[in-house]
């Protein structure tokens, strides 16, 4: 740096055109490279999201456009509309019925795959197979499987002397059927993500635990599960973002009906409600208000997930530290009882 110090004193005018061009290239190129992303993303990603709020403050429909400025009226109407709450209930119900068993099954499958298998690749591929069936196709297939009259499931139930289930009329049965579609497509996918996390757990941990006499189940709960927690939270957050926007499956579950989401709106999710409000009823202002509420809910839940997992993590380190301290104490006491020379240890303390 010291040898070149006279050069800047001469000023940039001493540089040739090529050199200046090269400097500009170094300085401004990065901006040129990231700009397309920010411009496009701003236009088609962020701007619509923010503009949703503007639309929601108007009595907007397609023919008249913005219509009347109504302030927060759309929000007031929606928050008092039982169908809005019904859609939220359905969304959360389907989300919970799908995500909890799905994550449990995915963790189990991942643990089974996390062994020294013969034909590893084949088994990994085999759990991923349902993922290649698109949600629309999944919905068509399962809406037949869960058909009330001639569905595969009800045929079997009747053959076994059980009552057929009203999958398309009963609320819970419908939710279970829709959750089944989601689970079918995503369990293997999530199992592979969790498997990757499990494989990153150092083998020495398992070895030393088994030396200490920890069995297979104990090793799973005390080593595997805590080690994959960050990945688990990640899977949970992505599942939440996706699950709370579920649309295709409920839309196509009983598609012959005029009302979307079942005869009694019993599996009309919030996204389906938004779609119906805007594109069937031409109430864009209200649809935008619902979309904005859903957006806020999803972002809030994402934040809660994040902070909750963080505080659990710090709590657990505290607990495990306390546990270690207690064990050390017990160990020292045992040592003291066994070895008469424990006086020395006490003195050290």
């Amino acid at each position: 740096m010291t040898t070149t110090s006279p050069a800047p004193a001469a000023g940039t005018s001493a540089l040739t055109f090529r050199q200046r061009l090269s400097r500009a290239d170094v300085k401004y190129s990065p901006y040129v490279y990231v700009a397309p992303f920010f411009i496009l993303f701003g236009l088609v990603g962020l701007f619509p999201l923010l503009y949703t709020f503007v639309v929601s403050l108007n009595d907007w429909d397609l023919l008249r456009g913005p219509g009347e400025w109504v302030g927060f009226d759309n929000y007031v109407i929606e928050l008092q509309d039982p169908w809005f709450w019904n859609s939220l209930f359905n969304t959360f119900s389907i989300f919970l019925i799908s995500s909890i068993p799905q994550l449990a099954a995915a963790t189990f499958i991942a643990a089974v795959l996390d062994q020294n298998l013969r034909g590893k690749t084949f088994w990994r591929l085999s759990v991923l197979l349902p993922y290649v069936v698109t949600p629309a196709a999944v919905a068509l297939i399962f809406s037949q499987i869960f058909s009330e009259q001639y569905g595969l499931v009800n045929n079997l139930l009747t053959a076994w002397g059980l009552d057929p289930v009203m999958w398309k009329h009963d609320t819970w049965a419908g939710h279970v059927a829709i959750a089944t579609m989601v689970n079918w497509r995503w369990t293997g996918y999530n199992a592979l993500i969790l498997l990757a996390a499990m494989q990153a757990v150092p083998t020495e941990l398992y070895e030393s635990a088994s030396l200490d006499g920890a069995g297979r189940v104990r090793r799973f709960f005390s080593i595997t599960l805590p080690s994959i927690r960050p990945t688990f939270v990640f899977v949970l957050i992505t599942a939440t973002i996706g699950g709370l926007q579920i649309f295709t499956e409920p839309k196509l579950f009983d598609a012959t009906r005029a009302t979307p989401g079942g005869a009694y709106h019993q599996f009309e999710t919030t996204t389906l409600y938004i779609w119906n409000m805007a594109f069937n009823q031409d109430r864009f202002g209200r649809a935008a208000a619902i979309a904005f509420i859903l957006l806020v809910i999803i972002v809030l839940i994402g934040l809660i997930n994040y902070f909750l997992s963080k505080s659990i993590a710090t709590n657990e380190t505290k607990i495990s530290r306390r546990r270690t301290a207690r064990r050390l104490d017990r160990y020292r006491q045992a040592e003291r009882a066994a070895v008469p020379a424990s006086i020395e240890i006490r003195q050290e303390r």
Partner: peptide, 24 residues
């Protein structure tokens, strides 16, 4: 700063902007 912005937008469901997008 810009990278942080990219990461933050990952958690935002941009699909919910369908209403204005359709109007546009």
């Amino acid at each position: 700063g810009l990278m942080l912005f990219v990461i933050l937008t990952l958690a935002i469901p941009t699909q919910l902007g369908i209403i204005p997008l359709f109007i546009l």
